[in-house]
Structure formats: C-alpha cells, structure tokens
Design a protein around this nucleic acid. Sequence first.
DNA 1: TTGAAAGCGTTACCAG
DNA 2: CTGGTAACGCTTTCAA
Lengths: 352, 352
Amino acid sequence: MNKSAKTAGSSEAGQRRRATSYDVAELAGVSQSAVSRVFQQGASASKEMRDRVMAAANKLGYRPNAIARGLITQRSNMVAVVISQQTNLYYPEFLVQLTQRFSEHGIRVLLFALEHEGDIEQMLEHVLQYRVDGLVTAAMLTPHQFRTIENAGVPVVLYNRTFPDTVANSVRCDHTEGERWLIGKLHEAGHRRFAIVTGPEDSAVSTERTRGALERLEELGVREVPIVHGDYSSASGRAAFADIMDNLGHAPDAVVAANDAMAIGCIDAAREDYGLDVPGGVSIVGFDGVGPARFAAYDVTTVRQPVGRMTEAAVAMLIDRIGNPSISAEQRVFSGERIRGSSARFKEPGDG
Amino acid sequence: MNKSAKTAGSSEAGQRRRATSYDVAELAGVSQSAVSRVFQQGASASKEMRDRVMAAANKLGYRPNAIARGLITQRSNMVAVVISQQTNLYYPEFLVQLTQRFSEHGIRVLLFALEHEGDIEQMLEHVLQYRVDGLVTAAMLTPHQFRTIENAGVPVVLYNRTFPDTVANSVRCDHTEGERWLIGKLHEAGHRRFAIVTGPEDSAVSTERTRGALERLEELGVREVPIVHGDYSSASGRAAFADIMDNLGHAPDAVVAANDAMAIGCIDAAREDYGLDVPGGVSIVGFDGVGPARFAAYDVTTVRQPVGRMTEAAVAMLIDRIGNPSISAEQRVFSGERIRGSSARFKEPGDG
DNA sequence: TTGAAAGCGTTACCAG
DNA sequence: CTGGTAACGCTTTCAA
C-alpha cells in the first residue's frame, strides 16, 4: 500500500492531493506536455502514447483542471447568467433551456440571482472577477454598468431588456405589440371602460407592457383608465381587482393584467368575491402564456412569449460574439403568440 | 494618447489586455505582492499603500482574477448545482433561493441542467473538471457516481434524493409521510375506491410518493388500486383521469396524483369532461403546494414542501462540509406542510 | 511525434 | 509593513 502523503488520486481514499498532469506523466513515463496533448482536441500523439497516458490517467483518477486551463487559455468557458426573482418564477423553463443550449457548446453557466433588479451593482463585480466569456442578463443594467462590462471586453446579450440610446445585443419579446393586439381586440368587441393591473415597479417588462397598453388606449380615445399596482402574484391580482371595484364603484368592461398570474387572481376575485361572470360580466386578459393560464378553469386570453426561440437566439448571439468580439450589435425582437382564451369577449375568430 | 498595444484596462476602448496586479503595482510604484494584499481580507497594508494601490487600480479598471486565485488557493468558490427539468419547473424558487444563499457566503453557483435524471454521467465529468468546492444535486446519482465525487474530495448534498446503503448528506421532504397523511384522511372520510396518478418513471420523487401511498393503502386493506402514469404535466393529469374512468367504468372515490399540476388536470377532467363535482363526485389530492394549487378554482388538498428551509439546510450543510471535510454525514428530513383544500372531502377540521 | 521551458495572474512564505 | 520568489496546473511555442 502506498503510504506517501503526496501520492495523488488513489481510488480508495480521496483525501489526498488530486492528480495533476505531472503525476500522470511520471507514471506513464512521458513528459507532462504529452499528457496535455492527449487530453486535447487537435492533439498530435501516437496511439501508443495515447494508450499509456490514458491508462495512467485512469489509474490516478486524473481529470484536467478547467481552472488552470482557463488561466492559460484566457477562456473560462463559462458565461454568467443574471436573473431576477421574476424571471425564474414565471418562466421556469428559461434557465434550463439556456443552460442546456450553452452546454451543447461546451460552455457552463455561472448563475447570479437578484432579489430585485436594482441589486446588480455588487453582483457585477463578481461576474467580472470570474472572467466569464460572456453574459446574458434578464435584469436591467444602467448605461454605466453596461459600459463597465463592455470595457472589460465581455460580450453581453440583454434578455427582454432594452437600452435607450445605446447599441447593445438584445433578444426580446415585443410586449408592446402584444398589448396593442389585446387592447385592440377588446375595443373592437365593444369594451370601453378599461382598468390596468401593473407588475412590480422595478420590472422593466411590466413597464413596457403597461406603456404599450396605455398608448393603444390613448389612440382609441379611451381616457381615465384606473391603474392599480400589483407584484405579479395572483394574490396581488385578486387584491387589485377589489381596488378597481372600489375605485370605479362598478365593474369595468375589461381588466388588462401585466401577467397571467395576476389575471388569474382577477378572475378569482371577479367570480368569488363579486359574483361576476367571466367574460360575461367582465373580460380579463393577461400576458406570458404560462402553464396555469391554460387550465380549464381560467383559459386566459393572453400573449405567449416564444421562450424556446428566444433562448436559442440569445445563446447563438452570445456564442457568435465570444468567437468574434467585433461582430456588430443586433437586436432580435420576437412577436408573441396570440392566445384567444375564454376569459375575454372577442369579436370573432378571424384575426385582426 | 497611449498607443502601446500592451497597455491594459484603458477606460476608453476595452479590447486591450486586462489589467493585472503587476500593472497596478507598476503604476502605483509598489510591489505586486502589495497589490495582492490590498485586495485581500486580513491584509497588512498601511493606509497610504491602500490609497495609492486603489487609485491605480481604479484608473486601470483592475479586478482580481478569480480564476487565478482559485488556482493558487485551491478553492474555486464555486459550487455545482445539478437539477433536472422537473426540479426547476415545479419549484422555480428553489434555484433562486439556493443561489442567493450561497452568494451570501461568497460562493457562486455553476449550474448543470439535465433533460432526464439519467444524463448525469458526462455532466459529472465537467463538474469535476471545474474543481467546484461542493455539489448539490437534485438529480439521482448511481452509487458509483457518488463514489467518484467522493474520491475527488468534493462534498455532496443530495436534495430530495436518497441512497440505499450509502452514507450521504441529504436534505429532503418526507414524501412518504405526506402521502400517508393524505391517504389516511381520505380513508377516514370514507373513501374506499382509490386511483393513483404517478409522475415520470425517472423521477425519484414520484416513485417515493407513489410507494408511500400504496403502502398506506395496503395497510388499510385497500387493494386493486389502478395506477396510471403521467409526466407531471396538467395535461397528462387530465388524460390520466380519462384512463381511470375507462379502466374502472365509473368514478373512483379519490384520485391521488403525484403532484399538484396533475391533480389540477384531474380536476379539470372531472368537471369538464365528466361533469363530476369536485369533491362531491370525486376527491382529488396532489403534492407540492405550488402556487396554482392555491388558485380559487382548484384549491387543491396537498402537502407543501418547505422549500425555504430545505434550501437553507442544504446550503448550511454544504458550507460546513467545505470548511471541514471530515464532518460526518447527516440527513435532514422535513415534514411537509399539510394543506387542506376543498378538492377533497376530509372528515373534520381537527388534525389526525 | 515528443520534450523542455516559458508563461497565465494570483497567493503564500520569508526575509528585510 | 513591505518586496522578492516560489508555487498552482495547465497550454503553447520551439527545438530536437
């Protein structure tokens, strides 16, 4: 039995020093560079060398050290993904898809989660210290923060976020267009008295949706639209509906919620708390097209983000930029899928 | 204007070589070790030194390289988190909480997402190459895989997974107990004809839940329980309910679904497809206590995993093991929170 | 095809 | 408190 304290990678214990390419080289009777070559893509190594090295490596439980490799190659093969609470809650598949797609390119995801979108500052420092090869952010950056990242030479893709007056790569769903469609169809079907339920104030997505809805209403000559603030939760939607009723003294024709969860809360409130029929007594629309929106009891009229295509686009964009940093910026805007549920009265099946 | 190609970290361009501690040292007129010390915790540096170094660092946009630090300190300050599709879908808050909690300890999360729990093998190789300080897995490992990780000297915490005959750190919800409670209460309220809807076959959690339910039914003398396989989706729950009806030729007294999403699908099927009242015509219970289960239209009787406490426990356990690898294994089992909704007939409000 | 040696950007140890 | 120097484990010339 080997008693040397420096012996590496014995398959029995595991508390010893981990095997390095030097250990493997020594055991195989070859040079360290040879070991390195065997573990690379376009290596030049004879079959015999390969066999000897691999045998020694297996014996010692050797695995190349990705940290050391990253240091010398200047490529960590990691990208940072920054999400806020909301990103994950309402699109749980986002992270999994992103991670799997990066993985196919040999790239790992270093995850950063924010309580609120404002907390990016310190986080950014850590992101940059890890020398990630790129960054996908589903949280808002200030222009200054964005420049900090650019100066560090790290390609960025904004996910569902945009920048006034700054050239940046971005992938997003056209929330404005989606809201305009919803409002347009509701108006066309005769709805005149609207109410809006927004998401959290620090949500860029909610802001864009609300703005889109208000713009379209303005165009259609609908004024005095009560706006109630929610926090994206169904409970807040239910409470918001009560606020609207208090505010108006009667039911509006339509309630436009900034996401599906709140729309569902509104439907619950309308039915349970006010005995209103949906959509007979009031039409309610949401946004996102998440799973629960399709449950039979709700069947929310909404707009679905094409998350699969969006994550695919984000990954492709970032990988391209990592390979060639000089590629100029691009914005990819995806239209949402229009879902006509039964929670709103629309004029007819034909599209508009 | 500085034209030297080797100049680092100019705040204007960013395509240059990034500033190193040597660059900072040179500009500040001090040694490189001094710079290193200024950027550490228990540094010994005079105030004047600090100021000069920080000034130079800011000027150059210097940031310590976490990769290089990891190489020399033998601590990457990263932990790997392995999830499967399902983990994220039904407990979206899991990842965010885990990441935030690790972050409080200065530890970053390297994320690995599996399509199916069986895909761990290659993934593991990557995990180990990154020299993570620890690993939390919400996907099943084979005993062999587990030993591989242990031999690499990486502490592991199993999340909602267990091992036959192996000593391992784990944090889990007591699914068995939860199912036993559900079955017990249903039986007590007079239900005799049961049906079970399982999750995907490769889900360890589903298996445990189903086993717990069947055991309790067996004890209570209930035999011939039809078992239908779902995939955790509400659509599969809806389809499963139809299968049960076909199978039995009539409605069972109670349907026990392996998660809430399928329970909701069953409720939709019962009401919409068969005109059954829930819980009048059939009782339906789920598991998880996810958001949609609380929607007014469903109000599912279920058992909620205390995710917050569980992630907290997992983080604490792993951090302890990273600090002191010789701490012996521990298993932490959390009872689920019992939620009496209106989707099942229970005998009385008093507990059992 | 192979081996020697020079880094990559830190931290850590040791004198001064 | 400060500076010099040796690692850390790898990739990458450059000769042989």
